[in-house]
């Protein structure tokens, strides 16, 4: 707990953990989707093979500076976000950097990765990428509103803006925030599939419409970096939900159980639904999720 060496070691360990767990979650989601569709499906380590193969691919495409920077931007933003999320309640390595006020900071930094992707996709000049980016930003306007409302409600209710503060509230009272402030949880949960971009909210990378959207010009090492970043970011989002609403986790097994349970919700929804159009997606997020966000704010204020 003391010394900068432990902190650095903790950061590296957290990143590796996030990568491995996120990759396996991706593999499990592919396997589960396959089983639902009555298929055998790929092995659960398939995503590792994909990333490895993409690393071995050559790249002969040059679109300028931003095209090179975008995957690095995304992965650095994912790791930065990871650094501000406590992975375990208390532990030597996984508490990471935490200071008062980090929820507001997290809200900002969580969209930075998408911003990097948007800039990189814009510099490729592919029309599919441009459409994908505009759809992604529109959808972000959709799901950010209930998500921010839920978090603001929590901040008002418990007079703290820190993730660790909220975790302390839960450990002191003994109940999870999903029970003590249910409306915020519902709003955040309904907004969650938009962040994961599974069906029906996969309008950004719609393969049959947009030829995978913003990433359509990124292949090889770029795509590999983006997939790595995506799996880390998935882990971050799940851990953040668990930290805020489900009381955190005291050890890794509990963490994996809780995050996996949470992760199944967008995956299973995705397997049984078709893709929304952009305006349908925004209409969904501005409907019930925003309504519950309002209720949560009122609940918190009075």
């Amino acid at each position: 707990m003391e010394g900068i060496g432990y902190k650095i070691l903790g950061a590296v360990l957290t990143t590796i953990l996030a990568f491995v767990v996120g990759m396996f979650y991706g593999g499990f989601s592919r396997k589960i989707t396959a089983r639902i569709q009555n298929r055998v499906g790929p092995p659960v380590w398939q995503n590792f093979l994909d990333v490895l193969k993409l690393l071995f691919k050559k790249t002969s495409v040059r679109y300028g500076f931003m095209h090179h920077i975008a995957p690095l931007w995304m992965i650095s933003m994912s790791i930065t976000t990871l650094m501000f999320v406590p992975v375990l309640n208390d532990g030597l390595f996984f508490t990471n950097l935490n200071f008062s006020g980090d929820i507001i900071f997290l809200l900002y930094i969580m969209v930075m990765g998408s911003l990097g992707m948007a800039l990189g996709a814009g510099s490729t000049g592919n029309p599919n990428s441009a459409i994908g980016v505009s759809r992604g930003l529109t959808q972000m306007v959709g799901f950010e509103i209930p998500w921010v409302m839920a978090l603001v409600a929590l901040m008002i209710q418990y007079k703290t803006t820190s993730v660790t503060g909220l975790m302390e509230v839960q450990s002191q009272s003994g109940t999870w925030l999903m029970f003590s402030s249910p409306f915020a949880f519902i709003a955040a949960l309904l907004a969650m599939p938009g962040m994961f971009r599974y069906s029906p909210f996969d309008i950004v990378g719609a393969p049959s419409e947009l030829a995978s959207g913003p990433i359509s010009e990124f292949g090889g090492k770029y795509l590999s970096t983006m997939m790595t970043s995506g799996s880390i970011f998935a882990f971050v989002k799940l851990t953040l939900y668990v930290d805020i609403f489900m009381g955190g986790a005291s050890n890794l097994i509990v963490l994996v159980l809780k995050t996996f349970t949470l992760y199944m919700y967008p995956v299973l929804w995705g397997t049984v639904s078709a893709r929304f159009r952009t305006e349908q997606s925004v209409r969904y997020f501005w409907g019930w999720p925003t309504f519950f966000g309002f209720i949560a704010l009122i609940y918190a204020a009075f």
Binding site: A34, V40, P42, V61, E217
Partner: peptide, 13 residues
């Protein structure tokens, strides 16, 4: 897909 074969939408990938 059990052989790791997967569709791709763009020639770059």
């Amino acid at each position: 897909e059990r052989f790791g074969i997967r569709g791709s939408a763009t020639p770059r990938q």
